[in-house]
């Protein structure tokens, strides 16, 4: 009987050894993990006033504020390259299309769901503003639009501003503006119409909304 009791104790000790999760849950802070030390329970501390985070000190005022001598800059403070425009299109697709729409007409999905409609980028006022204006609005917000300074890094805001100019041009472009060499590609039925695609296939989500969650389609291997 005593031996049995001993065996049971050993078994229990072994079993509880398996249950310890000290390595799994170490007493350290990982991203956004709560803290028992600070009053607001955040381990991620807000930036201390009048300090600049490493890597975010830029000397060029035109680049960081979009202004020179208190006036909005009319020229991009970064070199205009194809990569910059493509980056801008990409970021525009992520952060701006929910309201402004893919063509910039101000009829994005969130507007269709009741957000105040922003003006189209095509209107004369916005065609005439200096490029720094777009940067300034993205950085500080305007009207109903909140600021995107926290979501879009400075360099990307300039990329979007540059792309907005291209977007404005594209809305008043006729086939006559396209070089003759590029026209056949545009007229072919499978011309790439791939400007910042939505993250989902439209038919897919309609189906998802109609039918609720379904299994993903079988993949071919």
């Amino acid at each position: 009987m005593r031996r049995l009791r001993f065996a049971v104790l050993v078994a229990l000790a072994l079993a509880s050894a398996f249950c310890r999760q000290d390595m799994q849950d170490q007493p350290k802070y990982k991203n956004l993990r709560g803290s028992a030390f600070f009053d607001d329970k955040r381990s991620a501390r807000p930036v201390v006033e009048d300090t600049v985070a490493r890597g975010s000190l830029w000397q060029d005022d035109r680049f960081t504020t979009g202004k020179a001598d208190g006036k909005l800059v009319a020229a991009l403070p970064v070199p205009l390259t194809r990569e910059l425009l493509e980056r801008g299109r990409d970021r525009y697709g992520i952060y701006c299309t929910p309201c402004h729409g893919l063509t910039g007409n101000g009829m994005g999905m969130v507007v269709q769901r009741g957000f105040r409609q922003p003006p189209s980028f095509e209107i004369d006022r916005l065609r005439e503003v200096p490029v720094g204006y777009f940067f300034d609005v993205m950085s500080h917000g305007f009207g109903a639009m909140p600021d995107y300074a926290a979501q879009i890094p400075t360099a990307d805001r300039w990329a979007i501003a540059a792309y907005l100019r291209a977007l404005q041009l594209s809305q008043r472009t006729t086939i006559a503006d396209v070089p003759a060499s590029a026209r056949p590609a545009l007229e072919s039925p499978d011309a790439p119409a791939k400007a910042a695609p939505l993250p989902v296939d439209v038919d897919d989500w309609r189906r998802a909304v109609d039918e609720g969650p379904t299994e993903p389609p079988e993949r071919e291997h």
């Binding site: 991203n31 992520i94 952060y95 929910p98 999905m109 969130v110 769901r113």
Partner: peptide, 25 residues
């Protein structure tokens, strides 16, 4: 399902650091 599926908001609109950090945010 609503925000991604129906509205079509990109993952990165909210998960801003997924392309440049360990943590997606």
């Amino acid at each position: 399902q609503h925000h991604v599926g129906a509205i079509g908001i990109d993952c990165r609109y909210c998960h801003t650091s997924v392309e440049k950090a360990a943590f997606a945010n």
